[in-house]
Design a protein around this nucleic acid. Structure first.
Lengths: 252, 252
DNA sequence: GCAAAAAACTACAAAAACGCAGTTTCTATA
DNA sequence: TATAGAAACTGCGTTTTTGTAGTTTTTTGC
């Protein structure tokens, strides 16, 4: 790197308070990678990209498949999971538009350690590993942002380790409801995503019956409401209060 | 970056099968950061470094303290933890010589989310955040390695999420024993580190009594031996077999 | 709007994990 | 090596979590 570039890089890095990594849809329908909500120019990022349409319920990343790239979510919602014993799913995270999927396979892993399924009709943008790597060495700031992004994901994940091992099932279910609320927001009093009780359980690390039981109790306590699969949060402060001592898992 | 450098960077990145990040002690007693077990030259890494001696039991990173750098372990053993409700500790990982500590605070976090305590007399090398950042923009390959390092840590952590939510306590204790064995190795039939039952519990996400009970059972089953605080693994295949279905948490 | 399928729910029994309190063993240090 | 303090251990009752099996409600596709 010549000193000119180095200097501008240095000042950029020093100034930057937050590493937003995301994407959005261009006018022409293709994907634009953004750092800190500022798009990388095409010349900075000579990527070969590929838009992919996914029907609800379609699994577009298989656990154990060779890693050959990563995805940005242009539109829709996705769950990311690992399969454990007896085929039991552990949902690692949910993703919505603007977010990255498959970066877990972008380290030294040769095979995806996670699977990903579309929760509704979803539009993805796919980047091959090689084109991403080109972008990374062409734009060191991008590598730096990726590094920070991973660092934050690591913090998130380790918070979750603590939650799982120290919270009761009721607290984990509440934690999950608040996470879903932060992630997907509300619409007319209901969470902006429809999940099965089993999916709540798979994220909270418990069983479907347990989630059903706890939802029943939370309904009686007027903390939430439920109309079939649609869940609404009635008293968010009440929920937050219960897990405040755990300085709970923050991820939006 | 000029094209000369870009080219060499590209080929380096493409060739590299594994991103080893670590350190070792120089002849003059100072620390040398290594990527892939090859030392970065002093000119690549104009760091201001500081060797620190830590007595057994001393906490050298406090949760909530402002992040101003990171540590490499030159000699000794360390536990990294988060404190939860009622002061209950969750041990996030253990570290031995050559490993990084405090990188969790190197993302966008302003304050350490973890604490670190020396398990025995330990020698650390401290790098200020600013000197590390200089190295990062001076050597993009170093940033890339840091990125890969974080990516692998993330995989590790998410494996642990699955383990905690799907394994029984007995399986988690066995998993912990195998992890300690991989991490610190054996000496004359005993694990090469002395941990209290509570520390095993804090890593496994359970209680001290539970670890004691399970150790007792494992002793009766001749899977382990225990002489006071020193634990030896008697039948590693037997232990591995029990958790093989979980494709357990790998980290050495 | 109807019927079949899927998901949600409930009660009860069983299993797993936990916490307490008292005892024994080990370890560090004078 | 004697001794005080810490850690390890044990048994037992309690709580939490899970699993089963049958019922009701909701969703989905025609």
């Amino acid at each position: 790197m010549d000193s000119e570039v180095a200097k501008s890089y240095q000042s950029n890095v020093a100034r930057r308070p937050f590493s937003g990594l995301g994407c959005s849809v261009c006018d022409n329908g293709t994907c634009l990678i953004k750092r800190n909500y500022v798009a990388l120019s095409e010349s900075d990022l000579p990527y070969e990209k590929n838009n992919i349409r996914c029907k609800k319920g379609h699994q577009f990343i298989m656990e154990g498949a060779p890693v050959n790239g990563l995805f940005f979510v242009l539109k829709g919602k996705v769950k990311v999971f690992r399969t454990g014993i007896n085929g039991r799913e552990q949902i690692v995270r949910f993703a919505k538009e603007g977010e990255i999927i498959g970066h877990r396979g972008f380290g030294t892993e040769e095979y995806y350690s996670i699977g990903a399924i579309a929760l509704e009709d979803t539009m993805l943008c796919y980047f091959s590993k090689s084109s991403l790597q080109k972008a990374l060495y062409k734009t060191p700031e991008f590598t730096y942002d990726m590094m920070l992004f991973y660092a934050n994901e690591l913090n998130r994940s380790e918070s979750k380790v603590k939650s799982l091992s120290q919270m009761t099932v009721r607290e984990r279910v509440i934690d999950t409801l608040l996470y879903i609320n932060r992630k997907f927001g509300e619409n007319k009093g209901f969470l902006n995503v429809v999940l099965s009780r089993k999916e709540y359980a798979d994220y909270a690390g418990t069983t479907e019956e347990q989630v059903i039981r706890i939802f029943s109790i939370l309904k009686k306590e007027h903390l939430i409401i439920a109309k079939g699969k649609r869940i609404g949060i009635n008293n968010i402060e009440g929920l937050k209060k219960e897990i405040s001592e755990h300085n709970y898992f923050l991820d939006s």
